[in-house]
Structures are given as structure tokens and as C-alpha cells.
């Protein structure tokens, strides 16, 4: 198999390299990719949409359908992870740690209910004390990461940024919380239901803004029709894009957290990385 693999790779690579002789040079402004449609996007963006960031205007306006279904793909990926892995059966055995002394209670029959006082905490089987430095640094860092994520979403129209990037940054802050403390901290802070609702809400915001355009007299995703609804009709397309980007941010943030939680805990949401 290895030998066959080398032959296939060499053949494919050789053919691709032979094909590159017909490709435009590095940085050639008159290459086919940069001459037809992209010139229109660059020159007409301000006129059409009043959004200086061309990437955002192409993403959320000119190619809005593409982005809408990309968001749906991400939502479906989160759903697939949930369906494949989620395991609602509880663990058979549980461990409780007495906080002042460090004595560990091992409950072998998980079905029996056991009520413990406040001085006990439910803990993982392979529990290790988390490092104080890591915890403190992450506790200080996480709020700033989240504020930065919101800035990236809100400022996507005017500077590099947008819903996808902001959502990923926000999701990574949640993952950082789960890594630096433990998975239960994250699951207790943000319930599974809330994450699922956020993922669905993000897609709903996108599709909802697109669909509201139709009863207002425009086409699907034609933000100009929203002009009577917003306070600044001059920038209606920019505001429509902002709303759509917020929806994308919600969906991406929730799906990142859902995928992470389900994979590290094998779907049981109790202990993990």
C-alpha cells in the first residue's frame, strides 16, 4: 500500500506541476481570477452597499445564499456530532471528594441516589488538581477574549473581521475555560440546551433577516427592502449585513462548543479533557 501510495502521489503531483505551467505568475494583476467579477466587487462595493470591507460585502450580500447555506452546514455538523456521540446514560460509578481533607468517596452503584453536603464535590475519576497559575491567567484572559470576539463581529463591516471569525474566537474562549478548569465548569455555566438554542438561533437570525425582506417588498436577502425598519435607511445594507453576521457568530460559537464538549467527553458531558 505504501509503494502504491508513492506511485499515485508522484503521478498526481507530476501532473499538477505540469499543469502549473499554464497558471498565471505569482501576483499577476491581469490573471483571469482577478479580471472579471472581482473588479466589479471592488469598484462598486461602496456605491452598492456602503460597506468598505469588500470581503464582508461579498460574503453577506453579493454571495449571501452561499454564506446562508455554509451556516446551515456548520449547524448540521454540530447536530451530527450531537447525534453520533451524545450518551444520556449516566456513568456507573461516581467519585466525591471531601474538599477540606481530600478524602475521596467512591460510589460503585450509580443508580442509587446519594445526597452529599456542600463540603463534597463531584469529581472525575482521573482527577488532578488544576494549576493555580493556569486558572488565574485564564480567568483574567477569558473576558478579554470574549470582548475581542464581540468587537470582531461588530466591526466586521469596516475592518478585518466578521461573524465566522468572531464566533470562532468566542468558541475558543469557552474551550479555554473547559481546558483550564474542567469540563463540568463549562457545562454548568452554559447548559447544553442553551448551546443548542444558540446554534439554531444563529441560523434563524440569518434566514429570518433574509425572509423578512420578502413581505417588505424585496427579494429574498435583498436588504434594501428593510429600509423602513431601520433608523438609518442610508446604510440599510450595512445594517442588514451586521445582523446576518451576528447570526453567523452565534451559530459558529455554539457549534464549536458543542463539538468540543461531545468529543472530549465521548458524549456523556461529565468528564473529559
Amino acid at each position: 500500500m505504501k509503494f502504491l501510495g508513492v506511485i499515485i502521489v508522484c503521478l498526481t503531483g507530476g501532473l499538477l506541476l505540469y499543469g502549473t505551467t499554464d497558471f498565471p505568475d505569482w501576483g499577476d494583476p491581469s490573471s483571469p481570477a482577478s479580471t472579471h467579477l472581482s473588479d466589479y466587487y471592488i469598484e462598486k462595493t461602496i456605491e452598492d452597499t456602503k460597506v468598505p470591507n469588500i470581503v464582508t460585502s461579498v460574503l453577506a450580500d453579493y454571495r449571501g445564499f452561499d454564506t446562508m447555506f455554509e451556516t446551515a452546514v456548520i449547524f448540521t455538523a454540530g447536530l451530527a456530532c450531537f447525534i453520533l456521540l451524545r450518551d444520556f446514560r449516566g456513568k456507573k460509578e461516581r467519585f466525591y471528594r471531601h474538599k477540606p481533607t481530600g478524602v475521596v468517596l467512591h460510589v460503585k452503584d450509580g443508580k442509587k441516589t446519594l445526597t452529599v453536603g456542600k463540603e463534597f464535590e463531584h469529581m472525575d475519576k482521573d482527577w488532578v488538581p488544576s494549576d493555580l497559575i493556569i486558572k488565574t491567567v485564564c480567568r483574567i484572559l477569558i473576558p478579554f477574549i470574549q470582548i475581542y470576539a464581540m468587537y470582531v463581529v461588530a466591526h466586521g463591516d469596516f475592518s478585518p473581521g466578521g461573524g465566522f471569525q468572531g464566533g470562532v474566537i468566542f468558541g475558543s474562549s469557552l474551550i479555554l475555560l473547559a481546558i483550564s478548569y474542567d469540563l463540568k465548569t463549562l457545562v454548568n455555566r452554559i447548559k447544553e440546551k442553551v448551546l443548542g438554542i444558540f446554534a439554531a438561533l444563529g441560523v434563524l437570525i440569518f434566514v429570518g433577516i433574509a425572509a423578512i425582506c420578502m413581505p417588505m417588498g424585496g427579494n429574498f436577502l435583498d436588504y434594501t427592502a428593510l429600509a423602513p425598519l431601520v433608523w438609518d435607511p442610508h446604510h440599510v445594507r450595512a445594517l442588514g449585513m451586521l445582523g446576518v453576521e451576528i447570526g453567523v457568530g452565534f451559530a459558529v460559537m455554539a457549534v464549536m462548543a458543542i463539538i468540543y464538549i461531545n468529543i472530549v467527553s465521548e458524549g456523556r458531558h461529565d468528564e473529559g479533557l
Partner: peptide
């Protein structure tokens, strides 16, 4: 510079992360 490849790849990166998650699952 041409914004169109950036737009296409922006979504492709996030989708690749999501598909990677499904593969891991």
C-alpha cells in the same frame, strides 16, 4: 487584492473545522 478567494476560503476554513469535528466524532 482580489476579495473573492478570501470570501470563499473564509467559509471553507470554518466548514473544514466543522467537518473535522464530525470525522473525530
Amino acid at each position: 487584492i482580489n476579495p473573492l478567494p478570501h470570501v470563499l476560503m473564509l467559509t471553507a476554513i470554518v466548514v473544514s473545522v466543522a467537518t473535522f469535528g464530525v470525522a473525530m466524532a
